[in-house]
């Protein structure tokens, strides 16, 4: 029997897909902001002189790097509400899971970036009478940021891909909507192919930018 291709129903329901795309972007933006800033705090915390800060930071990084994101999301969605007196919706649970995971990975990126700056730069700053903070701010960090851009951009791409996990706790992001359409119109091939292409078209240029940054500034993670 000849397969009847049906792209039309997808086009007809583009507004459903649009809702999904919006959902994906919402997760992406919020997660990146929270995850990358939290990662900076944790990264700094790992340098702290007080082991009461260093230890929790290290444990945080190890735990969230070495457990699957999906279990974290599910834990936040099903388990956490039992411990806290308020509701946790799918968006919040997904953002928490992905953001904490991102924070753990970016903490190491920040650390690696700072450590990769030649020790002599510290000498140069201190020798002209700059304090630790002044040297960090004016000499080390401006140079480290360039090194950190490729792996941080990579993290952003990963966040974008991980946003699909939110569909599992029924958040209306792109793949969730595509599944909805495919179940209503019985055209999984078209629905999922379109979504795959959508993701590819959005992410591929960013991946290329990452390669460019890598070439200019050094290794990604």
């Amino acid at each position: 029997m000849e397969y009847q291709w049906d792209f039309l129903s997808i086009v007809d329901n583009w507004n459903l897909l649009a809702i999904g795309l919006l959902g994906t972007f919402k997760i992406f933006i919020v997660t990146c902001v929270i995850g990358l800033s939290l990662g900076l705090l944790v990264g700094i915390g790992r340098y702290s002189r007080a082991w009461s800060i260093r230890l929790p930071a290290a444990v945080f990084v190890e735990f969230f790097r070495n457990t699957p994101v999906l279990i974290q999301i599910i834990w936040f969605y099903f388990a956490l509400p039992i411990l806290v007196p308020f509701e946790i919706n799918a968006f919040t649970a997904s953002v928490m899971g992905i953001a904490l995971n991102t924070a753990a990975f970016s903490a190491d990126i920040y650390r690696g970036g700072i450590q990769s700056i030649d020790r002599g730069q510290w000498d140069g700053g201190r020798a002209i009478g700059m304090s630790y903070l002044q040297t960090m701010r004016r000499v080390i960090i401006p140079q480290a940021i360039k090194r950190m851009l490729p792996p941080l951009t990579n993290r952003g791409i990963e966040v974008f891909k991980m946003s699909t996990l939110a569909s599992i706790v029924a958040y209306a992001e792109t793949i969730h909507q595509a599944k909805l359409i495919s179940e209503s119109y019985f055209n999984p091939i078209e629905s999922f192919s379109v979504v795959a292409l959508l993701f590819f078209v959005v992410l591929f240029p960013i991946v290329q930018v990452t390669y460019l940054l890598e070439r200019r500034f050094g290794k990604s993670d």
């Binding site: 002599g120 730069q121 140069g124 020798a127 002209i128 009478g129 304090s131």
Partner: peptide
């Protein structure tokens, strides 16, 4: 450390590896 920072303001040092920014 704050005293040492002040001391270093009064001494100049030039390094083998330059350490320019």
């Amino acid at each position: 450390e704050s005293d040492l920072t002040h001391v270093r303001q009064r001494m100049g040092m030039v390094f083998q590896q330059f350490n320019l920014f």
